[in-house]
Design a protein around this nucleic acid. Sequence first.
DNA 1: TTAGGGTTAG
Length: 502
Amino acid sequence: MTSPKMLFHLLSRRTPPAFSFHYQVYPPNPHYFLQFHRLTTAPPTPPPRDAALAKLILSSDPQTLTQTLQDPTIQWTSDLVNRTLKRLSNHGPKALHFFKTVDRHHSLSSSDSFDLAIDIAARMRDYKAVWALMARMRARRIGPGPKTFAIVAERYVAAGKPDRAVKVFLSMQEHGCVQDLNSFNTILDVLCKSKRVEMAYNLFKALKSRFKADCVSYNIIANGWCLIKRTPMALEVLKEMVERGLEPSLTTYNTMLKGYFRAGQIKEAWEFFLQMKRRKCGIDVVTYTTLVHGFGCAGEIERARRIFDEMVKEGVLPSVATYNALIQVLCKKDSVENAILVFEEMLRKGYAPNSTTYNVIIRGLCHAGEMDRALTFVERMKDGDECEPNVQTYTIVIRYFCDAGEIEKGLDVFEKMGSGNCLPNLDTYNILISAMFVRKKSDDLLVAGRLLVEMVDRGFLPRKLTFNRVLDGLLLTGNQSFAKEILRLQTRCARLPRQFKL
DNA sequence: TTAGGGTTAG
């Protein structure tokens, strides 16, 4: 076994950089205030109507929708279309109906809107719609572009069809899209991120000379091996990179550092970091965030804190992500109280927490059984103007209410999110449906049945197991007619084209 | 949407 020190020697860059540059967004710089000033003094722009529009679309049936959308006061900018599509993305059928209706009347010409619609169709595994939309893009000469292919490939992989994803990549040219090193790197990354590393590596080996693989390609593959905890393979790949004369970048080192932590090689991670320091790799905020998170996850809270304090002395300011890492590990391995102290400290220092920050705190409070306090943080998100609660926020709260046996409260949160402007996703439905079995109440099973019908209606495909559990439950509690309805629904789902099936 | 750092619990 080679030691990290030896390997580092192998990987280290030949010429140390003259200086290192730390890019920071926060604390805010004076330009932000100038920008804010300009925004407040500019003539008032009408607020985006996407929220109201999404509500309207959700409450109207397909027949009246066309009329609704013909309101002449609506300015169909691509921004409005995109925002609305995003709001409707957890209601695929409505989202696509909306897109098709607006497109029919206004002939949309933004590739971003098409990409969003294609993503929604692909998530529903409606590949016929996906390819029809891609053909329409081509006819309008607005695509399909590299981003479109990235989306489609990603969705094929997520649906368990990585071979189809590769085929799509290989056929880019035929569909009028340039196929270059960037798109090669993208398909490698899509495969790696979904842990199809072996397949990515084979593709890489087969095509690396054709596409002239660069440092990014190698970093993607190394990261892939790290994701499945195979650090020796990652190092082997990087060794080849260096031998081919490609210089490792700071990303390369940060990737390996994270890889060691992920594989539980804490000692190696530390040694590797010391080498990075010694060799003046230009350690940055990502390096430090990796250390804080890595040591924290390993239970070494004090060490994580020490590194957090040390980075400032070294001239690297923490980012929101660094705070999120520290807050998360404090929640997990220390106490939520200490995590909240850090949260308050970041506010004092002028950082703007994002939805991840809030979600981490909310989860910590839920985990500690402090549901009421968790809900006050959800309210804080609503009141503040930084970030609204998202589907993850609500799903966390619902999960913990259900786990604590407070199913009514879970359902209550579910109702509120659905009637507001945040639609539940597959996770939300799965959690709630499972919760409907714990009390062994006949009424709960009716709710489970209704949720199942609703999720199918919104373009989600329940697992076979979910269908069977609901069916058994309904039959056992004497709800024969509803069971029959569910059975018909299951048959309908099963009759969908093969690609619809899980 | 060409690469690296924050989100579950099992």
